[in-house]
Write a protein that binds this DNA or RNA. Structure first.
Length: 475
RNA sequence: GCCGGUGUAGUUCAAUGGUAGAACAGAGGACUCAUAAGCCUCAAACAAUGGUCCGAUUCCAUUCACCGGCACCA
């Protein structure tokens, strides 16, 4: 990441048809660490950290009907569910939240449409329509050519839609993708380049209102609403106050470094469609999109039917907020898929937090409380965040845990608890050193585990051993 | 089928054209400040075949296995 004065980071906006998923929790935690890191580097006012909820579309409309609820209330409820994550995961205070049903967002989406007007045209959309579902089916909805839900053959139906000329942007997209910075990891960039080379087709960006009413109205066409993609992608700039070119939009999107965090299945949407839309509207492209892997459990996708779903709230309930942050940040691979099970989580927790960090705090603070006077605060310095430049969260944390290990080792070698009898001066000096090194570790932990960091710091400053930070979990 | 990725100790990962590192789990030991934690020691791996090379886990090819994407699902 470059040395820009300001930094913009956003997650993708989760679709609100289900409870928050652990994958999204992981995504927003990664974003949170980066946001906190940049806030320390650039100052809080120079970082814009965004998330939100994608609330339009057929599926949500149907889901609301299914539970017999007004769709406005339904999305409101889920938006709150997602907003709760902020506190539950102790996300940065400055986190912004955009809902695609907000007025300012709707206006922005419509404005973007108008700006893209030259690349938007009307065409017959042909699709397989299921009368049971009352919607067009995708390939995935089909089993042996029949609707997987209703077991009936869909009819070929045509309707007028608005299309976006994605095909026109092949060259420009390739040009954009030439820059090795725009996608992390690099092999996903290769993937994106391949998509483009295989040829891009224009895509439909609207739906007939008679079939789908829950969406943003197409400017100048009362019969159509925007297809969710067009609408949702706009949120990355509507949150900045666009279409106003001034203020946050200028500061962060135009003049700052922009980074989008997304799942690996998003390449086509974030790095191709969205970038083409920006090009069409004459807006600067995203500087970087970081694609993370997925979290599976027991070798399979998490799914309700398999009963292997691990929700972020369950994690928090069992391990606590900071421990959840630790588990998801240190043990989830940043770009590959990660397999997570309760057994493994327990092991990670005990090894890293109970036996590692928690125990170290106990032993040092016991020695300190017993043998030393108050701690006179120093200004801790320390930079361990090099690995974050490559968005390698695991490596960054490994560096901290290596320090923890070294401290444990130092205690074993120097044996200050023995030395205190024969050579108290020397022992005290050692304990004082340990204390200082521990406060440096706390400093390093600040962006990963903010409240733990604070607790360790406070314990040292008040020279008082804290309660067990991370009680051991016994199977 | 097409495109891409991956295959390293029991597990999860790392590095490297020339003795393959670590963490967790496992076995043993000496200690006691500490959350039966920590420290030390031990055991344990380069999917298969062929090629290039003085030399390959690393480069190339093939095979096998696994994963992802192949667009209007968000």
């Amino acid at each position: 990441m470059s040395k820009d004065k300001s930094f913009y980071i956003t997650t993708t906006l989760p679709y609100v048809n289900a409870e928050p998923h652990i994958g999204f929790a992981s995504e927003i935690l990664q974003a949170d660490v980066l946001a906190r890191w940049k806030q320390e580097e650039l100052g809080e006012g120079n970082v814009f950290f965004n998330t939100g909820t994608d609330e339009h579309g057929q599926k949500i409309f149907e889901a609301a009907i299914k539970v017999n609820e007004k769709v406005e209330l339904y999305v409101e409820k889920y938006a709150q569910e997602f907003k709760k994550l902020k506190e539950a995961l102790d996300l940065s205070n400055n986190l912004k939240f955009i809902r695609t049903t907000e007025e300012k967002h709707i206006k922005a989406a419509q404005e973007l449409w108008v700006r893209c007007k030259n690349d938007i045209y009307e065409k017959e959309f042909e699709g397989l329509y299921c009368v049971g579902c009352e919607r067009f089916l995708s390939q995935r909805d089909l089993v042996d050519g029949k609707c997987s839900v209703h077991q009936i053959e869909p009819q070929l139906l045509k309707e007028k839609n608005w299309f976006f000329k994605l095909s026109k942007y092949q060259e420009k997209l390739l040009k954009y993708l030439e820059n090795s910075e725009v996608i992390i990891p690099d092999w996903r960039r290769e993937e994106a380049i391949n998509f483009v080379k295989e040829g891009l087709e224009d895509f439909s960006i609207s739906r007939d209102k008679t079939r789908l009413s829950w969406g943003v109205s197409v400017p100048g066409d009362d019969t159509q609403v925007m297809y969710v993609w067009f609408d949702a992608l706009t949120s990355y700039i509507s949150t900045l106050g666009w279409p106003s070119e001034e203020g946050d939009f200028r500061k962060f999107w135009k003049e700052g470094h922009t980074l989008q965090v997304a799942g690996k299945d998003q390449v086509r949407f974030q790095s191709l469609m969205w970038q083409a839309m920006l090009m069409s509207a004459g807006i600067k492209n995203t500087d970087q999109v970081f694609y993370h892997g997925f979290i599976n459990s027991g070798g399979q996708k998490m799914s309700k039917s398999l009963g292997n779903v691990i929700s972020p709230y369950e994690l928090i309930k069992k391990y606590g907020t900071d421990a959840t942050r630790y588990l998801l940040l240190r043990h989830v691979h940043s770009t590959e898929d990660t397999d997570v099970t309760w057994e493994r989580l327990d092991e990670w927790y005990n090894a890293g937090l109970a036996n590692g960090l928690g125990n170290l705090v106990s032993r040092i603070l016991t020695l300190s409380e017993k043998h030393l006077n108050q701690y006179s605060e120093i200004n801790p310095i320390g930079k361990i965040y090099e690995a974050l430049e490559d968005l390698n969260f695991q490596l960054a944390m490994d560096t901290i845990w290596l320090k923890i290990q070294n401290l444990d080792e130092k205690i074993a070698v120097l044996e200050p608890y023995k030395l205190i009898k024969d050579n108290p001066e020397r022992a005290k000096k050692i304990i004082d050193e340990l204390r200082t090194e521990l406060i440096l570790i706390a400093r390093d932990l600040r962006i990963f585990m903010p409240s733990t960091s604070g607790m360790i710091h406070d314990a040292i400053v008040s020279n008082k051993k804290p309660e067990n930070l991370f009680p051991r979990i016994n199977a």
